[in-house]
Nucleic acid binder design. Structure first.
Lengths: 213, 213
DNA sequence: TGCATTTCTTAACTTTAGTCAATGAAATCG
DNA sequence: CGATTTCATTGACTAAAGTTAAGAAATGCA
């Protein structure tokens, strides 16, 4: 066993390795050899809160997998930040277009918290899959799973009102509400911070009424 | 050469075959042999306008690729139809969850027009890819492309106002506005038919002003 | 600790969307 | 072809979201 000690601040080897194994084994059981192959190939990076991983116009060289922390994706339109995604523990993310076609990114990635990531989808990938062909199926399943999730998110976004979108987020990712500034959440929900504030007040008033009655 | 004659009404063999080749070759050049393999394996179906391909609660047995026509996807919530997708020429679609896990579908598919589809992702798939391994890469690229598109759609949905969403749709899929009833379009845009009607009036007034000045 | 900055909430007002109802146009069907 | 149903638009009204501005609360940093 070739278990490395973590040399990264505020990150724990056991936790982060479990995070990636949890992700991979959701698609089916894996052999110990394949698990170890993945763990041994882990290329980790630590970034402090506020670090920008990618800027508009830049070209990406790899994808990421969040082991600990939170990365926000946002567009800058007319000087205004439009948040379109939050990546937390167990989330893979990349800029497929920029990565494959070496085109400039249209958006930014910034760490909302101190964040540890594993690099993936880099130039060694082909060699890695050649060595561990079993893992190609896992990769395809992960891709299919991502597509499913993405479709579901768009569908629920289409069907829900702003208030319902907030309630949905509370159910699916309750941690975000506490980890992330409200104005970024509001943007992610497609509304202004003022609207989100009012929605929260409306909901808490409703909740108070239920408690009293 | 094993070119079948189309026996399906209102569908033309040459057009439909070109539709699927256009789709496949967008991911890179293909050998003539691979092209022919795909065309020979085509399993087509014709459905008349109004036909329901999938109902809530049913389990799917394959995916589809639209050769001609238009299929609408909708959820039924509180007796109300919530349209979440339109599949037109060149669009692949499936219910990944229902297909893979044999779980009941949460939504419906119905033909908005007379529609010709090719079946795909059925039980013969594994055998097919075994015979034509080259095509596995095409399948993966198609999957990646779908994921990219889906992410982009969610992002633009998050960032745009209802009016902007309508304008975006006019740009990306101008045909839909004429093929599809307004109330279904409105639902797809996350608003009521009345709102869409008002947005259209507002926009045409703006446009009139520009013309006059 | 205290000051500065960032973030969140509130309020007043404007704009836009939802709701309900009615009407007219268009498509469908026998 | 006329009758019926479906669909699109409009109007009046209500509810909710955007905008602008101000101030309170929280946070970060020296």
């Amino acid at each position: 066993m070739n278990r490395r000690k973590s040399t990264y601040p505020k990150s724990n080897s056991f936790d982060t390795e479990q995070t990636i194994l949890d992700f991979l084994t959701q698609f089916g059981p894996m052999s110990e050899a394949d698990k170890q192959a993945v763990l041994d190939s882990l290329n980790m990076r630590f970034y402090t809160k506020g670090t920008t991983l990618l800027r508009e116009g830049e070209v990406t060289r790899h994808g990421y997998f969040v082991l600990k922390g939170c990365v926000r994706q946002y567009y800058l339109v007319d000087g205004e930040e439009k948040t379109t995604a939050f990546f937390t523990e167990g989330y893979p993310f990349d800029n497929a277009d920029s990565l494959k076609n070496q085109t400039p990114s249209k958006y930014y990635w910034a760490c909302v918290e101190d964040t540890t990531v594993a690099l993936c989808g880099d130039e060694n990938e082909a060699f890695f899959f050649q060595q561990f062909p079993h893992l190609q199926k896992v990769a395809r399943l992960a891709l299919e799973g991502e597509l499913s999730k993405q479709k579901e998110m768009l569908e629920s976004y289409i069907m829900a009102s702003p208030e319902e979108r907030y309630l949905n987020l509370m159910k699916t990712r309750p941690d975000l509400v506490n980890r992330v500034p409200q104005y970024q959440l509001a943007s992610y929900l497609g509304m202004t911070p003022e609207s989100l504030s009012r929605i929260r007040r409306r909901l808490s008033q409703k909740y108070d009424l239920i408690k009293v009655n």
